[in-house]
Amino acid sequence: MIKIENLSVQAGAFRIQDVSLTVPSGKYGVLMGKTGSGKTTILETVLGLRNASTGRIVLGDLDVMGLNPAVRGVGYVPQDGALFSSMTVRDHLDFALMIRKVPRAGCQQRVEELANLLGIEHLLDRKPRGLSGGERQRVALGRALSFQPKVLCLDEPLSALDDDTRVRMCDLLSNVQKQTGTTTLHVTHNSDEAERLADFLFRIEDGQIRQVRPEL
């Protein structure tokens, strides 16, 4: 579950005041809004990369306010993928496992599992340079899912893709979310993407979040 309660965040001159949303466990939540509406700020606050002034964020059954982002257990896929240029795709997939000192056999098994799930087996020994937009986002998704996070946060992950790739990635995201059962919060400005993916659809306007689907 992702539960944001009465959250207020100050980001420079921009302020989000008293917003709330809840994505139940295992569901796909989409937060829609125009550029500059504050959706990325909210996502970054959930991730712990930005401090909230007031409010509460609960992930699963844990109140994560003030908790270090490293221990929140949130997988993160940024807009541009932010792949590590010096690492191979395999290194990306077992990076979080290496930090958790997972034995080699376990890492190998998890990497194969993820590569199979995301259709990137043939890319495992390649570095990010030269990967297509869709491939990069698959790798970023695999990296975020590698440590089996309880929550997945996606920040406009499909915005840089062409229409065909975007449709395919939407299907992939939907399938992966259903298979893994990871509670997901996806922010986007694209209504088509939101319609395709959302179990719970929220709209942010004028600093306020409104639940669009299912209607309250």
């Binding site: 490293a70 940024p78 792949l83 990076f95 930090i99």
Partner: peptide
């Protein structure tokens, strides 16, 4: 890149 690494643990 650093933000992602931090969220990875």
């Amino acid at each position: 890149c650093e933000d992602v690494a931090i969220t990875l643990g």
